[in-house]
Design a binder for these strands. Structure first.
Lengths: 156, 156
DNA sequence: TAGAGTTAGACAACGTTGTTGTCCATATAG
DNA sequence: CTATATGGACAACAACGTTGTCTAACTCTA
């Protein structure tokens, strides 16, 4: 009747995240997006389908400096997922927007995430998955995007 | 009655991990281990209280190269958490062992993890936490240690 | 309207954590 | 005894982050 050691919970949370993200990217690669990486995916999600964002805004949304955001944007631009356009109303601002391919990758990711969740629900039961989400929502901050993982994990 | 979008689950899993690890390190810092970082903690855990390991073994256990493991050991040595000794039976091998301080940090971490888990159980109910662990155990690989996070998240 | 302050982006220098590749010393096997 | 494998050190480099500095452009106010 004893509980597992306390360190198992965070380990399993991380492993769960990793399993899902690995599966997502394996499927994305299979469906024409082999260059997509977890970080790029988060960035695309943060850029979104709306009117576009600037490097400063993206950095703020992801919890990193504008320079770091700018480098990520450079990569995504090179891969054809985003494009930059100068704001007609403010010559300083460069608006970053998803390209058609970028939107496609986002849509595809959402479908794949839903499929993965459905398989979890098949294995564990829909109510258990829902309970897990609910419990995690209670224990984590509401703000969904604070994904400065490399820095966080590296230097704390 | 619709399910949340599929991407919420992995996001919450990551956030949950992060919340717990952040809390652990805040508490560790408060109790005399301000230099401890997530990665160091994982390395200490992998080194363990046993007879010590070599850089090659540690690298294998953590899924990184022996050079990377060696660099982490350098850091931990500088912080006073481990010490190296040459194997009397094999002059090539340098055995890495936790110092008293290293063991203390490990023991402290275990206590803190247990406390965090107890608080989750208070908030969510013991059975819900147990269910979460059980479900995650079913959906993740049994091998607990494969913590090459920076590389994995960065370059995939 | 002119000047001061703020903001966006680019560029450079650097830190951390990884990677490969090379090399030497030591063990082990044929 | 020699050939091979292994452990560790060192160097060069890649990826992703940081801070600092500079310039261009906007905005506010005297």
């Amino acid at each position: 009747m004893s509980s597992p050691p306390g360190f198992e919970l965070p380990l399993r949370l991380l492993l769960g995240f990793r399993v899902i993200i690995d599966e997502l990217h394996a499927e994305l690669a299979r469906r024409g997006h082999p260059g997509m990486k977890p970080m790029y995916g988060f960035a695309c999600q943060a850029i979104g389908r709306g009117g576009g964002v600037t490097a400063v805004e993206l950095g703020r949304a992801m919890g990193v400096s504008k320079q770091a955001a700018g480098k990520t944007i450079d990569q995504l631009e090179k891969l054809g997922y985003v494009e930059r356009a100068t704001d007609p109303a403010d010559a300083r601002r460069k608006i970053v927007q998803l390209t058609a391919r970028g939107v496609e990758s986002l849509t595809l990711s959402e479908q794949i995430f839903d499929q993965i969740r459905a398989r979890w629900a098949e294995t564990l039961g829909a109510d258990r998955v829902r309970a897990m989400e609910e419990d995690l929502r209670r224990m984590t901050p509401p703000d969904p995007f604070q994904l400065d993982m490399p820095r966080w994990f590296g230097t704390f």
